[in-house]
Design a protein around this nucleic acid. Structure first.
Lengths: 342, 342
DNA sequence: CTGAAAGCGCTTACAG
DNA sequence: CTGAAAGCGCTTACAG
């Protein structure tokens, strides 16, 4: 069964292929009767235009590429993809996904450029690209939108959308300080950077700055990197217990770290938050279900904003805002409380 | 900056465009000297062939579409996408994602067929398609691979990959029965089917069959559907407490339900597993971190298998196995134990 | 082994 | 408002 072409539709409707094209794309003016004839013919033959052919002609692909760092899976990337998708779908665009997990894949990507003539814009999530890489894309006429790259790309001529990680962490520290905590530790995931700069680095930096701003001391060992496995909670707990002075609050780089830590603490008889406060970051549905304090942000909304920007840029629009900062919300739930009196 | 075309490379190398094409694609035989000249010219001009143009000519898109039900986000879909991606990337294919969240979107998809001439095969995840829909795709010459559709598609002429939900749930019930449990409740998420048939329905069916096979009674109200919000745990708990006889074990349709339930139970002073056993399904990383008993399966691996099948089918290969059943593993951890003596 | 030419299915100046 | 024609950048029978 070969697909009907625009010529068959034209024949069916008794018009030329050019007219069919115009009727379908609907930019040119066309008489209502002709339009109706064409639509009927399309419906009858089950015609839909080959994107490939129109792409070859127009140079527009109606596809947007989403490029993530470590994995397509995971809460952030998949929420983001969902947000991107919802906008693309409503505009007739397709979503193309790429993962650049390490330096090799990244190099391949920028040398073979699978997005070249294959997407109209590229959304880059959670890692920084170099000035050279950005320029490579630019020379292909490929607009680039960064998500969660704020602070990484300040000096670059590039649209960025996301939260300000530094401000968010500073606010978190401020809040804990306000509850009387003076010894606050930080837990993050060990992560091989693979030549990437991640938003995670921004969160750590924000924590440091927050501590400094509150005039709080940050002893050696107070920033703890745990492995990313099923023992992460236990590992964090034992690192914490080894600290002197013992922290009364723990800031986690994400809920992924906070949830197992709270579990480990409670399993070992610590009361949370009475003995120790714990706060996460992200606001996973599970954080809500388990009543974990956290910092809420919404990658789905960045995705939507990024997709919108991508489409506009690819159409040649000029965006006035080059940096959209989305606010975070502190969600104080059942794992944070006043510092214990000693 | 317009990209160099094959003609410019041909000129540079002093050969014809046809020869350049042959040198690059490397199927036809070509003299070593010519090949070298072409490669040099390509390197010099930074040429890479336009996929779009070659697609228009050959009809192959080198793209595979992944179509999910409710959301691109979420553990299952995103793990699946990751698995699909890893295989596609290694073979030079691109991943195109679609979400069909409700009957409308689904109808649109099958009528406008965005994948037509836009992908070489389509992988359908976790919901059943009708015979008509399958045939629509077939008539486009579009191979279809179902993931997690086993049992839904037995009678259909369609490749399916996934776990056997019914067997998995039966085994779970069998295991709980072996621990002495006779009153076993089931918790699932309320879900509007939107005209879809989901794998979730298979799990419920498997639970029923398992109870019957063990000769266990399933009183009214023992299958509980909770809303999908932050009160899911509390809601499940109160429904459970209203039951008579009181269940000694609870099978959850997924870890998403099991984790909040365990939390709610413990918050209210119940001992898990001493007073009541809870088992989930999926084996989320969080289930492992929180020591929740569950049934492990691995959507990433289905994704890889599905992508492999998709590529082969799109190349015209005939696959001998039409149904690949992946085994599940019962992970008995800290939330299941012997039934309490009364 | 290599080239000239046709054609994949559209869109869009250019006429009318 | 509509049509005839050229062309987007490749690949592939068909000759040689």
């Amino acid at each position: 069964m070969s697909e009907p072409t625009i010529y068959e539709v034209a024949k069916e409707a008794g018009v030329s292929a050019a007219t069919v094209s115009r009727a379908i794309n609907g930019r040119d003016r066309i008489s209502e009767t002709t339009r109706q004839k064409v639509f009927d013919a399309c419906a009858k033959l089950g015609f839909s235009a080959s994107k490939t052919a129109s792409m070859l002609r127009t140079g527009k692909t109606n596809r947007i590429a989403l490029t993530v760092g470590n994995s397509l899976a995971g809460w952030f990337s998949s929420q983001l993809a969902e947000g991107v998708y919802s906008v693309l779908a409503s505009q007739g665009y397709d979503l193309l996904s790429y993962r650049l997990a390490n330096a090799d894949q990244r190099r391949d990507f920028f040398s073979s450029m699978p997005v070249k003539r294959n997407a109209d814009a590229v959304i880059i999530s959670s890692f920084d690209i170099s000035e050279t890489e950005r320029r490579t894309l630019e020379q292909l006429g490929m607009p680039v939108i960064g998500v969660n790259t704020i602070g990484l790309t300040e000096q670059r001529d590039m649209i960025s959308i996301g939260v300000d990680e530094i401000i968010a962490m500073r606010q978190t520290v401020h809040q804990l300080a306000g509850l009387g905590h003076r010894n606050i530790a930080f837990i993050c995931k060990q992560q091989d950077s693979n030549g990437f700069i991640w938003e995670a680095d921004q969160r750590i930096e924000g924590f440091r700055l927050g501590m400094a701003a509150e005039g709080l001391n940050l002893p050696d060992g107070y920033i703890i990197a745990v492995q990313d496995n099923e023992f992460a909670g236990a590992e964090a707990l034992s690192s914490l217990l080894a600290l002197s002075p013992r922290p009364t609050a723990v800031c986690c780089i994400s809920d992924e770290n906070a949830i197992p830590l709270v579990h480990a603490l409670r399993s070992y008889g610590f009361r949370v938050p009475e003995d120790i406060s714990v706060i996460g970051f992200d606001d996973w549905p599970m954080a809500q279900a388990l009543n974990i304090s956290t910092v809420r942000h919404d990658p789905r909304s960045y995705g939507a904003l990024a997709a919108d920007a991508a489409i506009r840029l690819s159409r040649g629009e000029i965006l006035t805002e080059s940096c959209i900062v989305v606010p975070t919300t502190l969600m104080l739930r059942g794992t944070t409380g006043p510092a214990p009196r000693d």
